[in-house]
Structures are given as structure tokens and as C-alpha cells.
Design a protein around this nucleic acid. Sequence first.
DNA 1: AAAAAACTAACGGTCGTCCGTTTGTTTCTT
DNA 2: AAGAAACAAACGGACGACCGTTAGTTTTTT
Lengths: 201, 201
Amino acid sequence: MADGEALPKGEATRRLILESAARLFRERGYAEVSLRDIAQAVSMKTGSLYYHFESKESLVEAILTLGTQGALAASRAAVGALGPGADALDRLQAVFTAHARFLLEEEDFASANLKILPQVPPATRERHVRQDREYGDFVGAIIDELARAGRLAPGVDPTVLRMLCFGALNWSISWFHPKGLGATQIADQLIILVRTGALRP
Amino acid sequence: MADGEALPKGEATRRLILESAARLFRERGYAEVSLRDIAQAVSMKTGSLYYHFESKESLVEAILTLGTQGALAASRAAVGALGPGADALDRLQAVFTAHARFLLEEEDFASANLKILPQVPPATRERHVRQDREYGDFVGAIIDELARAGRLAPGVDPTVLRMLCFGALNWSISWFHPKGLGATQIADQLIILVRTGALRP
DNA sequence: AAAAAACTAACGGTCGTCCGTTTGTTTCTT
DNA sequence: AAGAAACAAACGGACGACCGTTAGTTTTTT
């Protein structure tokens, strides 16, 4: 076979474990999913997982990392696609949309992230918060740019604005339904809120 | 002692168990807290808890109920205090403020609710969702009133608006810090967003 | 003394983890 | 090219710790 890419077999299993575990974690939470559940999902025996991961904790840590790195990459790509001279508000909308799409449509890694981060062992959580901060800083820079340009209404706290917006988006996992509004539309509703508010002028 | 109220001793212990368990659940999640942890927190032996609750599940169910009922009562009271002729937007602000205060300052019941609802046994969760819907309907009625009066901007979906707002508030548990902005100010920032957006006109 | 409340001690079950073994492939030696 | 040695990957069973729960008994309250 003219197989262009020879991805090492071990790496493929590792990836399969990560994806299956992420889906289970997202559906049931960290403590509710046992290594036996994960092993069964990938048609392996429990002990074999330890060939690829040294503990349940290190497995979940890998999942958390893939989640935030993925979301950050998606947001960066969306902003990059706008070109270098794009307006800060348009860039913010691009981030909202990318975030919502990644969260609601794309992969299990991001949604597993939000769901299980509070349940994970404290040491793992604290180690991971640093990665989250990188994402927060990326978005914070865009909002700060709006603030420094004097485009925010008086009385608006840039940091709280960021937190409220991402809270609104992140919480949508718990009510999003595939038959309802799509991820892009949800992000649009949020950007309307930021741009003009919800009221008729 | 001239004790005006003879509150049954058992009822006091029951309340103590509920409060301690709610705090533990909020801090660590449902599965991460064992009945032994709860017993130790109230200086009892594990088996004694079964005199007051017939299972861990029924304990957590009582906590969930106290949380939503409390939040709903707080919101109803705040709206009631405005008087019967109050503007719908002012009533919405009152709900936001009451919700944020109850969530961030008041009791552990509300925050435990948000944290552990996704982790609780499915049967319990489904039974509880009906109570949550009562709260949602109460707020939904206010927003629908704005919509029917034609006061929402074109393109704004009332249901999504409600979800985004409460997502923003609920998510604040994860970043709220007592030294930062207070619950009332956070609610104010949100109502600014709804009223005028975040941008300078 | 009766009832309410808390205690002690155990049960069966599941969990994360570990470890000796097995199988198939790759690499080295000659 | 053939056989030996090393390695990668998964198996399968065991371990102790902890879980929710129960039963029988003792203490406290009224």
C-alpha cells in the first residue's frame, strides 16, 4: 500500500485510549469512570492501560492538556484567518465562534475539560490552571485592546466582561441541543450582547 | 431557660449534616466525598448518618432541593420587593442580583447544586430537573414579557438570551474571589451588557 | 422506663494499581 | 540468510484500600 504516513502503532492506541476516555469522562465525570470502563471501551484489559499511561491521573492530565491546547489553537487560527489588520471586535467574535464550535461540535477533549476539571485531583488541577491562563491571556489581550482604545462603555470591567462571556459560552454545554441553535448562532447571540445589548434602541 | 422555641434536637442535627455535606460536595464533588468524610465533619460515626437519611442519594437530593428552592425564593422575594408595577428590566436586574448573591455569598446549597448536579445518579438528576425548570420558567416569563412588548432587539432569541445570562452568572462560581468584585457588582456588569452592550455608544 | 439518637463492627463490592507471563515483531550477531 | 537476543504490547490475576450499607448494641434524652 502506498501509505504516505506510517504512524507508529503504539501512538495510535494511545490516541484511541485518550479519545475514548475523554468521551466517557465528558459523559459521566472523572470519578464515575473507572479504568475498567476505559479498558472495555477500547477492547483491552485494565492492566494494559498502564503500558501507555502511568496512572489514571496522568491519563486525565493528558486529556485536559489536549483540550485547552486544542481550543487555544482553534481560536488562534480563527483570528489569524482574519488577517493582521482586523478590527478587535471582529477578532473577538472570531474567538467566540471558534470557542463555541470547538466546545459544542468538535471534540470531546474540550467539553471533558470543563466537566471534569473541578473533579480532578487538586495537584493535577493546579498544574493545569497555568495552561488555562494562557488561553485567558490570549483573549484578555483582545479585550484590553478595546479598553485601551477607549471603546468600552464607562463602568465596564474588562476582566469581568471576559469572564461573563466565557462563562456564558462554557455553560452552554449544559443546555446545548443539536436540534436547536448551532454553535455559531450561539456565539452570534453573545456578540450581539457585547456590541449593542439585547434591547431595541 | 426561657427558650421560646423547642426545636427538636434531631432536626438540628439533620440540618447540620445537610450544611456540612453541602460544603464538602461543593468543594470536592459528589463522588469524591464519602459518607465517612461527612460523618467526620459533623463529629459522628458513619453509620449514625443512616438514622437521618436512608442513603447517600437521598441526602444529596435534599441538598439539591434546598438549593433550587432557596434560589427561587430569593429571586421571588427580590422581585416582590420592587412592587407590582415595576418595569420588567428592573425585575430582571433584581433576579440577576439575587441569583448572584445567593450563589456567591449566601449558602453552600446553591453552589453545591451547580457543581454536583451533573455527577449525581441519573435518577436523582432527572427528578431534580423538574425543580430547575420551575426556576427557569420564572425568569423566562420576565424575558418573554420584554419580548412580547417588542423591547428586544431584532435577531435576539429570548431563550438563548436567558441561557447565556444565567450561564455567565453560574460560571462565576469558578472565578469569583471575595477580594474582587462583589456579587452585586457582577450582576450589575451583566445587566449593563443586556441594557446597552459593552461598547461606548 | 420508653423513645430517640448515636455507636461498634462487620459485609460485599469496586476501585486503582501492580506484576509475572505471553505473544508477536524488530534488531543484532554471526 | 538464520538463529539469538531484545523489545513492544497486551494479558490476566491478584492486592490492599476504600466505598455504601446493614445489624445489633449502647448511650442520651425526655
